[in-house]
Design a protein around this nucleic acid. Structure first.
Lengths: 187, 187
DNA sequence: GTAAAGTGTAATAGTGTATAACAATCGACA
DNA sequence: TGTCGATTGTTATACACTATTACACTTTAC
């Protein structure tokens, strides 16, 4: 699809070739590995070697974090994917369904149901694109903005718990490392 | 991965093996944050603020890593959950279905299908428990062991890619941080 | 102007997970 | 020893998420 999209007010496209700032990771902390050994911890059989496999560790952490996040924003009636769509549309209004889906790694066919629901709840709306009659320009409604605002407050509570669990000084380290695993490992 | 794991007799409960000491995290590395700005990277709209949310970052990383892992062990016909069951049964033979399910965070009702399939493929078997007629003592078959061995080789290739992507010196840091997000954030 | 590509949509299937119910069995204990 | 609550494996079922295919409509490229 065409590159630069809406240049609302936030001037995009100023991607200085050389990364603006390198992030110097210098985390120094004492960490207690939960437990080692092939045994039982709190009545549950230890997963042993599994815990040293990045994939497994990632999955368990992700599930755990999502569990907390979902419970935290439950009052908004939003699920994680819906929340991320609102954040994205708030940041960059006018995106097409395909653009949002691609950015979030969602199949555009599956995105239909998602945006349908957001529209049904009056949180977002499809406006006809002025330049392309095939697509819609997605927008947040006022209700969408207020809901998002509340969701952000709740998300902050959740994020605070995550920071506490992982250690505030280590959060940026974690994010930096995770970003390296972003979409696609070279093969 | 490790070098241990071989003497898979039935001696569980042999504590201490991995240094139960404290893990000193001292990662020092230069990391290029993928890209900043509300813009487009390679034709895809940037997710912006989303990238700073641990949950989102975790999810994307997990999906990416799993994708690679699944593709890598595809030749064994194993899916991640099945692989983890084999690893667990190899490490601790004789576990019951409930024990394995609990250790892996799987609903025991859903584990039935999983072990059924492993048994159907001749990789594991249900032996009658000698002490409890309600449950089974799960075991790997010879075929299960050889399949697991091959899967481990393939997993090593996968893990190597992960290490390269995240930086070999940072892997233990990542694992330590992820373990802190393990099951359940305090609420 | 015609062919190729992109957009939104529906239909469908596959997978993963959660819940409820149930028979068989175990464990505790009066 | 008999009863009752808890546990184990199991089936059935439902829901969320994902992937694939197909299609009409529109845009883009040659």
């Amino acid at each position: 699809m065409s590159s630069k999209h809406k240049s609302s007010k936030t001037d995009l496209a100023h991607r200085s070739e050389t990364a603006p700032s390198r992030l110097r990771i210098v985390a120094t902390t004492d960490v207690e590995p939960p437990e080692a050994d092939t045994a039982v911890v709190a009545g549950v059989t230890d997963v042993g070697a599994l815990g040293q496999m990045t994939g497994y560790a990632l999955r368990r952490a992700q599930i755990s974090v999502f569990e907390d996040f979902i419970a935290t924003i439950a009052e908004t009636g939003l699920r994680p994917a819906q929340f991320s769509v609102l954040v994205l549309l708030d940041q960059t209004p006018g995106l097409t369904q395909s653009a949002v889906a691609a950015a979030l790694g969602i199949q555009r066919a599956n995105f239909v149901t998602l945006i349908n629901e957001l529209e049904r709840r009056g949180l977002a709306r499809r406006e006809p694109s002025l330049t392309d009659r095939r697509s819609y320009a997605l927008q947040l409604t006022d209700k969408g903005h207020t809901t998002l605002k509340r969701a952000r407050e709740l998300h902050a509570l959740h994020e605070a718990r995550v920071r506490e669990a992982v250690g505030a000084e280590n959060v940026e380290t974690l994010l930096a490392l995770l970003s390296r695993l972003g979409p696609g490992l070279r093969r």
